[in-house]
Write a protein that binds this DNA or RNA. Sequence first.
DNA 1: TAACCAGTAACGTTATGGGTTACAATCTGT
DNA 2: ACAGATTGTAACCCATAACGTTACTGGTTA
Lengths: 95, 95
Amino acid sequence: MKMHNPPHPGEVLKELCIEPLNLTVTEAAEALGISRKTLSAILNGRAGISPEMAIRLGKAFDTSPESWLNQQMQYDLWQAEQAVGNIEVKRLSVA
Amino acid sequence: MKMHNPPHPGEVLKELCIEPLNLTVTEAAEALGISRKTLSAILNGRAGISPEMAIRLGKAFDTSPESWLNQQMQYDLWQAEQAVGNIEVKRLSVA
DNA sequence: TAACCAGTAACGTTATGGGTTACAATCTGT
DNA sequence: ACAGATTGTAACCCATAACGTTACTGGTTA
């Protein structure tokens, strides 16, 4: 039932992009055109990947913005499912 | 180059879910457990699909929350790409 | 020791989701 | 034509979140 909680995209960013290239947070932030604080927040899971940030990451690391936003979506969805236990919604489908 | 602007998920929701079932906005909002105003905003493209809303839509219409969030992601990404013309980002990839 | 690096707290700005209430316009059925 | 339902939307409130600057603190290293 795919019950594994998805990693925060910031972790992936750190482990797959920043660390392999031996980049400091300061350097990376500068290259991305954002503040050191903002990147730090992302890397430490205290901020999500915004659409604009996904574009920046895509350009910097030559990846697709969608891949970043997809990870973020999986993460957010998981969080939301945990947060709201069972919402009361009437079924409206034909089934 | 896939230069078509993605439809707002609200349009899709209206055309594929609300209208086919002959639901009024008021009824649908009530069934979803949200305010009429909130649903109206979504249907008219003035609000996006939040993760929690995607869960509600998934339960109500027996669809996957991911499908709604995916549409929202495509829409947001396209908007962001239009908004920020060309952001200045240094390339950090190995290539 | 001095320089750099990272996390983070404090503060402000802007944007967005969501709720309630209320009003005006439009259907719709009797 | 009149009454009720339906809808968009404005006004106002609240909470959250992204982003920035400044500044402090602790750790690492040349």
